[in-house]
Design a protein around this nucleic acid. Sequence first.
DNA 1: CATGATCCATAAAGAGGCCTTATGCCCGAT
DNA 2: ATCGGGCATAAGGCCTCTTTATGGATCATG
Lengths: 302, 302
Amino acid sequence: MPDLNARQFAQLPPLQAIRVFEAVARHLSFTKAAEELGMTQAAASYQIKLLEERIGAPLFLRRPKQIELTEPGQRLAPAVSEAFSLLSGAYSAARAGAEGVLCVSTLLTFASNWLAQHLGSFQVAHPSLAVRVDTSNRVVDFAREDIDIAIRSGGGKWPGVETHMLFKADFTPVLSPRLAASIGGVNEPADLLKLPILDPGDIWWQEWFELAGLPAEELASRPGTSMGAQAYEANAAMAGHGVAILTRALFKNELADGRLIQPFDLVGDDGHAYWLVYPTARRNVPKIRAFRDWILAEIACQ
Amino acid sequence: MPDLNARQFAQLPPLQAIRVFEAVARHLSFTKAAEELGMTQAAASYQIKLLEERIGAPLFLRRPKQIELTEPGQRLAPAVSEAFSLLSGAYSAARAGAEGVLCVSTLLTFASNWLAQHLGSFQVAHPSLAVRVDTSNRVVDFAREDIDIAIRSGGGKWPGVETHMLFKADFTPVLSPRLAASIGGVNEPADLLKLPILDPGDIWWQEWFELAGLPAEELASRPGTSMGAQAYEANAAMAGHGVAILTRALFKNELADGRLIQPFDLVGDDGHAYWLVYPTARRNVPKIRAFRDWILAEIACQ
DNA sequence: CATGATCCATAAAGAGGCCTTATGCCCGAT
DNA sequence: ATCGGGCATAAGGCCTCTTTATGGATCATG
């Protein structure tokens, strides 16, 4: 496409040469400018000559032991300097900005039940890093969304990303003490069937009852609503509306203080887990390393 | 010099990539930007990837059929655009400026007796070109002075410059009619010796008298002042102060209207001439071509 | 639902721009 | 007079960037 090319090149100066020009105009010396730019004096000379030919006029007067700006040079220099400081400012701002804000995409329940409680210690450890939490149940595509790091649940095999397991996505029935008491206590798995089951269509129920040795076909036909997030079902369960099947790790507090109880030790496990994931290509970006190191330590010590 | 290089590169963005980024951000399309820049889409993709790695964050979100700026990208784009428009403005101003002002270095007499009278027609022909005339008897060095084109007198052999002969630097005595009448007319070369000779040390006198077949050793011992420019001596001659030896081409008007008379057809010629000269490297610069073409035509048609 | 069109990513290979090395010239200073 | 600092120039090589070619993904269309 020679035409467009030519037109474009006529309008915009050769940038490399402009960069050299800026340095030479500032130092009024080819040698010093070349030093600053980390190249040889010959290279600087070459670039300036190039630019002078492009412009059609000399930019410097070669005096013995010293050079001077010609009239066109004098007109060009200040604008170039300003443009470059603008550029370099914006560039480092973009770098800093990219370093200063960490966008975490996470599942809703993980955000509300784990991250919200722990994030404080991260911010203490990294006061200069602002964290933006983006909660959604979608699977994020790092190429399509403005996300640095994510928490996903699943099998842990995704292409192009690094993964670290946070905890198993196990599942076991939980309910409020009051609801359990209302039928004289939940003593065996079959007792649960006397109670309302929250989201009875959930595959976890099938698997858990199977594990418990009970037929659970009946469940599938029960009416019920899927709330889409464990946190919602946990709330419903705490309110006494029924039995939920949840991942314990996400409800340590509720289980510890008795708002929810786990009637059976039997815990289902379909091999899924909660994972920390981020693009392999960005594994060494400082803020990503910082968050990764922090969350793994935090998970490990609890 | 790897150290300096690295430091420098950390501070300033890779300019070629920035140029591509600017176009992509404007079009929100790799393909369109590449078209505008006269390169392939693959090249644009490469440069953006490069810049993203340098910055440490994605600049665009790749959505189907469309891309979007990420947060860092949004911060970077406006500043880059502004810097570029500044640059391109200054650049074309420098070009225009370089194109719009023509600096002519000329000998004093040529300026006052030829250029001053003809320059008007050049400005009519090229109204957008401002001419700055720099008169000096020095030989200009195009690398050391801010001069586009010059008129020199001499043999016509200089390195690195294009030359065009304007007219021969011939010489013949001239004087005012009144001065000639004061000795009853100047009828033969020897009559001149009865009159004051302006700048008797001038080599031209030696050569002319030699040509006329007269001994002129006596002249060298006469007191006299060299005024340094033919124009001055012409003025002295017109005022009747003596006989000057001048180049006729420069005094056509004075000879035509009788302020000066040329008593003898005998004209000296030492092979020197007036030349138009300019750097070979700049022979195709438009304003230089314009001036050259104009002056050669002007000289030819008179 | 299949097909084609559009857009971006990627790999491989080639070209050319840019840098370095080496040298020369010029001027001023010791 | 010689030396030293500064810029210009030539030759050569590397490395960046570009092109070509291809694949994957999405969206529109019949």
